[in-house]
């Protein structure tokens, strides 16, 4: 007898036309999201001459990965730029997490005078466009003697990333039942022990999401700080490095695209590893619903 081996619950089963609609929706969404990347990738495969041919051809002829080799020669310091970006983002993310995890826990669990005000201030600050603050920040960096150092790109980044990270993680931590704190307290656990052994493991998926969001944020916002607070080539991050492919006479488009893909690879690898630790439904069974 035929046996239905489908382990999906009934609510996860769809009729054929629902399935078609769902995939159509996903396709349209992905097309809009990915088309620039697809074209960028195709450009990186084309010989430079073909890029300026008319009419424009979407698919490469004689496509090759030559640009991925030559890019390292056109801009000799490129590896350094990638390293800088990576370093700045990693250090910034680590600092943000070190500050935000305990802060978010405090905001989630303890009630103290002026908490609402502080949280509102965080929200307000995070709504400021970074550009508005560049000039005051420049003066601050100069006073602190941080101009032309890695810190000039890390510190403002951390400051801008903290508020939203706190909001995100606080919301996540507020969903952890307070009964768990009380149970641990009944059993004699200190606040710190409870935080480390109970709250932290349960909050881990939230912390990883915050880490990913922060890392991406740090990766993408660093160049504005780099251009403003740093003039040393050896500290420049990736986006600034990419400008080096804008030559005097021409833009080496295929190498620029190849370099962009190589440049985001480390970030993609980090994110890939982080998201593997995202375990959903970790609080299942903590309390009866």
């Amino acid at each position: 007898m035929a046996r239905d081996n489908d382990t999906r619950t009934m609510i996860d089963r769809y009729t054929w036309w629902e399935t078609v609609l769902i995939y159509l929706g996903i396709f349209v969404f992905l097309f809009f999201l990915l088309s620039p990347f697809i074209e960028g990738f195709l450009v990186s495969l084309k010989p430079l001459a073909q890029l300026f041919s008319s009419p424009y051809r979407f698919w490469p002829e004689n496509g090759s990965f030559a640009a991925y080799v030559s890019m390292w020669e056109s801009v000799p310091g490129f590896a350094r730029y990638i390293f800088n970006s990576f370093l700045i983002s990693t250090v910034a993310t680590t600092l943000v997490l070190l500050l935000v995890v305990p802060a978010a826990y405090a905001f989630a669990r303890f009630d103290f005078r002026g908490m609402g005000l502080v949280l509102a201030a965080f929200l307000a600050v995070s709504m400021f466009s970074g550009a508005v603050l560049l000039i005051p920040l420049f003066r601050l960096m100069r006073t602190l003697g941080l101009l032309n150092t890695y810190f000039a790109m890390i510190v403002p980044g951390v400051a801008f990333l903290i508020p939203s990270a706190i909001w995100l993680l606080r919301t996540y931590m507020m969903r952890i039942p307070t009964e768990l704190n009380e149970a641990a307290y009944m059993d004699g656990a200190s606040q710190f022990y409870t935080f480390r052994r109970v709250i932290l493991p349960i909050a881990m998926p939230g912390i990883i999401v915050v880490a990913i969001v922060t890392f991406i944020g740090a990766y993408s916002q660093q160049f504005i700080f780099a251009l403003t607070f740093n003039s040393k080539t050896e500290y420049m991050p990736l986006p600034v490095g990419l400008f080096a492919y804008f030559g005097k006479q021409e833009v080496i488009w295929n190498e620029l695209m190849a370099a962009s893909f190589v440049g985001i690879a480390p970030a993609l690898i980090i994110i890939f590893f982080l998201q593997r630790h995202l375990v959903g439904g970790l609080t299942a069974g903590a309390i009866k619903q």
Partner: peptide, 9 residues
């Protein structure tokens, strides 16, 4: 506890 308050992890 009224809710069991078990440590889920």
């Amino acid at each position: 506890f009224q809710s069991y308050a078990l440590y889920p992890h």
